[in-house]
């Protein structure tokens, strides 16, 4: 029973990694750009929501404010990394997105220090008890929201003309352009979407752990990247599987081996999977070019 409980907790934790992994995978899949500013955006949205709450804002305003900051930050990253540098080696936008990560974290450090800050509990500590299992409402909501968002994005990509345009761009930018798809309009949309997803995951994280700090994005960001790679870079369903798998591994290794060895098992699993299946669980080999 306790094990089942841990599995449930792991899946809930995994929801946050899923969102971060999907953000990474969208920019990799469509633009071939590993956007390292994502952990910074994750942190910014949570920190800004926390500041707003501290200033007495209602959570119904504070959360949208945090998300708005995340979207704006993502938009700024687009303007200064991807937009000017799409014609150069793709390491350059990657490096400048790392620059943005460092910038965001240091701005927050300067303004509010490096300490862990308490994020007020917004959702009453309600639990559902079913046959001896305890399921936290907050955690359940965040897993449900994460999965709904990802399914929504996947439907958008499959069913809408904009989605088909994004997938065309992912496969071949020149072909997309000659079909009349406006790449310079789609790219900002993509950054807004990833900013929003990342922002939501940052706030969910803050709500579930009830703490925020300037460095909170780093650990989650690394696990998000690991989740994306495990699932298959550029594959949305792969990001879901990877995120949940990492969440599960985390809680199960705490359960079986103790909290101090978590990273060993999470990244150990990551290494083993990468060696066994370098393209990721759902990733296809580059030759077929199938993405998203």
């Amino acid at each position: 029973m306790l094990l089942l409980q841990q599995i449930i907790n792991g899946l809930m934790m995994g929801g946050i990694y899923v969102l971060v992994a999907v953000s990474f995978t969208l920019t990799i899949g469509v633009l071939n750009f590993l956007n390292f500013s994502i952990p910074g955006i994750f942190m910014l949205s949570a920190i800004m929501a926390w500041r707003a709450l501290e200033n007495g804002w209602h959570w119904g305003l504070a959360i949208p404010f945090g998300l708005l900051v995340a979207i704006c930050a993502s938009f700024v990253v687009e303007r200064f990394t991807y937009r000017f540098m799409k014609n150069v080696d793709h390491e350059i936008p990657l490096v400048s997105s790392i620059g943005f990560l460092i910038l965001f974290e240091n701005l927050v450090l300067v303004a509010w220090g490096s300490d862990q800050q308490k994020f007020p509990s917004l959702i009453p500590d309600l639990n559902i008890r079913a046959g001896g299992l305890i399921i936290g409402i907050g955690q359940m909501l965040s897993l449900a929201l994460a999965l709904l968002l990802v399914i929504g994005i996947s439907l958008l990509l499959k069913r809408t003309q904009l989605g088909r345009g994004i997938r065309a761009l992912a496969e071949n930018a020149e072909t997309a352009t000659l079909l009349g798809i406006e790449v310079h309009r789609i790219v900002p949309v993509l950054f807004v979407v990833t900013g929003l997803l990342t922002g939501i995951s940052g706030i969910l994280f803050a709500m579930n752990y009830q703490q925020v700090s300037a460095a909170m994005g780093d650990v989650v960001g690394l696990k998000g990247i690991a989740a994306m790679v495990i699932g298959g870079m550029g594959n949305i369903w792969g990001a879901i599987i990877g995120g949940l798998l990492i969440g599960l591994t985390e809680v199960l290794s705490i359960y079986f081996f103790g909290a101090d060895k978590v990273d060993f098992y999470v990244y150990g699993l990551f290494l083993v999977l990468i060696i066994l299946r370098p393209q990721g669980i759902l990733g296809s080999s580059a030759a077929t070019g199938v993405k998203l």
Binding site: Q161, R167, A168, L178
Partner: peptide, 21 residues
């Protein structure tokens, strides 16, 4: 275009729909 440049990760119908973008 030269070399057809079909979008191979999309279905036949999705390719046609993109022609009407």
């Amino acid at each position: 275009p030269e070399g057809r440049r079909i979008l191979i990760s999309l279905t036949v119908e999705e390719n046609l729909l993109l022609g009407a973008y």
